[in-house]
């Protein structure tokens, strides 16, 4: 970790800016894709959520709230002034998704997942690793942006 941090410090400012921006774009791609697929196949998404014991009663509300939040965070990631907030929001929502998957793996008999096309073919363990990877990526983006802001002062 210290070695990685030292390397980041050695990187040029432009490189760091480029990496931070690329991270924003990667997060944006994932959420834009996910939100679009949920909105275009709302019926299937709602039906799937309705089967989950803890969500079932609120399935219709959750089915609208999740892609709406993903869309909102995508917008935050597009606008340069709100990208920092967008990365935090992305990491938080991905954290919630990760907790959901982890709880399903631990306690649910059936594991319903209505994820986007990239993730549909992954097992739930792989899905968990994928999510954690993206959370770390987003937090890395937050760290880089914070560091750049301090350097600019």
């Amino acid at each position: 970790m210290i070695n990685l941090s030292n390397r980041l410090f050695q990187m040029g400012k432009k490189t760091q800016e480029g990496i931070a921006f690329a991270i924003c774009l990667a997060c944006l791609f994932l959420f834009a894709l996910s939100a679009y697929e949920k909105f275009t196949d709302m019926e299937r998404f709602t039906a799937g959520l309705a089967k989950v014991r803890w969500i079932g009663t609120y399935a219709a509300m959750v089915a609208v709230a999740v892609p709406s939040l993903e869309l909102l965070i995508s917008l935050l990631l597009i606008i340069p002034a709100t990208q920092h907030l967008g990365l935090w929001a992305f990491a938080t929502l991905m954290g919630v998704f990760t907790l959901y998957i982890a709880s399903m793996l631990l306690w649910a008999e059936q594991l319903p997942c209505h994820c986007n096309l990239i993730l549909t073919h992954l097992s739930f363990g792989q899905h968990l690793v994928f999510n954690i990877g993206f959370i770390l990526l987003a937090l890395g983006g937050v760290y880089l942006r914070k560091k750049l802001k301090l350097q600019n002062k």
């Binding site: 924003c24 944006l28 834009a32 894709l33 597009i78 606008i79 986007n116 096309l117």
Partner: peptide, 19 residues
């Protein structure tokens, strides 16, 4: 911002194509 919008459009296009 333009690049961000392009990525969002690409994501939608990718989804529509594979669906």
């Amino acid at each position: 911002m333009a690049l961000g919008l392009l990525v969002a459009v690409l994501a939608v296009g990718f989804s529509a194509f594979t669906s």
